[in-house]
């Protein structure tokens, strides 16, 4: 599927802001079967952006704004051919392989808890239960199933800072929360896992040329002999409706827009994603 994506994000302030430093992660890359045909990023007020590739392989645009402004708007436009869904690896290995020293060492940072995916005793016990007697692939399936059965999709209950343990306690949340809890459970079950950020085209049979309101979306990569992208919000393998932008240990490694500034408090954060099917 070829998609045109427009992601507008930014802040409105209660007064003037004079010095603002930001990092934007809004740029999909051509990886894993995904092909990026075009991408541009525009900042208003107009400033130059400084692109680089971060530790996780994500494109980061840094920019600073020194003219007084009351509104900061960043727009990322991408033209992307999405990758087809790839299910769990054939001949996926068992936990004997996943728990081998060299494998554990290679994935150390994706097995260790991160600040937003720290496991408490409840998470650890649940992970042990879900994993018992299962293969790694089955463990991933059971974790996703459990999360979908026990966590309700609901906006406004959690915040951008809610960790996995908070999601488990609240039993409600949005895609970020589903992804954090899934990652935390998988890591506690000794399955390497990472948090993925990107976009989801909302329809399975959308019309070409019609633009749809979309979302900044989050899902999960699990390693079971190979990477397997699964979307705990929908319960499906991530496929051609998913556009990958970044992955990392948790949200903090992939935040689409983060920054600091001097000046008046921020009044509101705007996020608008528009997705148009091109083929």
């Amino acid at each position: 599927m070829r998609l045109a994506i427009t992601h507008v994000t930014g802040y409105e302030y209660e007064g003037e802001v004079v010095a603002s430093y930001n990092l934007a992660r809004l740029t999909p890359r051509s990886v894993g079967g995904q092909l990026v045909l075009d991408h541009r990023i525009v900042v208003d007020p107009g400033v130059a952006t400084f692109p680089s590739i971060d530790y996780w392989g994500t494109v980061v645009h840094a920019f600073d704004v020194h003219v007084p402004h009351r509104r900061l708007e960043v727009t990322g436009r991408s033209d992307v051919v999405t990758a087809d869904a790839v299910g769990p690896p054939a001949d996926a290995p068992g936990f004997d392989v996943l728990e081998r020293d060299d494998v554990v060492d290679q994935f150390a940072e994706l097995l260790a808890p991160s600040s937003m995916t720290a496991a408490d005793e409840v998470v650890a016990a649940l992970a042990g239960e879900l994993r018992a007697g299962q293969s790694p692939v089955e463990t991933v399936e059971r974790v996703i199933e459990w999360v979908r059965d026990h966590v309700g999709y609901e906006r406004g209950v959690t915040s951008v800072a809610t960790p996995a343990t908070g999601v488990l306690a609240a039993r409600r949340g949005v895609c970020q929360d589903f992804a954090h809890l899934t990652v935390a459970l998988l890591r506690a079950a000794r399955v390497p896992a990472r948090y993925v950020s990107g976009y989801l085209y909302p329809l399975t049979d959308g019309e070409v040329g019609v633009s749809l309101d979309g979302e900044s979306h989050a899902w999960v990569d699990a390693w079971a002999g190979g990477w397997w992208s699964v979307d705990p919000t929908s319960g499906e393998t991530a496929g051609d409706r998913h556009v990958r932008v970044a992955h990392g240990r948790d949200y903090q490694d992939v935040a689409p827009l983060a920054g600091i500034y001097h000046g008046a408090p921020s009044k509101s954060l705007m996020v608008h994603v528009d997705l148009t099917r091109l083929t």
Binding site: D54, V104, A108
Partner: peptide
């Protein structure tokens, strides 16, 4: 080359991924 385990580096509190590259 497995001279130093990955985990020793990536679990160090002072391994700053912000400086990678």
């Amino acid at each position: 080359d497995r001279v130093i385990p990955h985990r020793m580096v990536v679990t160090s509190a002072h391994f700053h991924r912000e400086a990678a590259g």
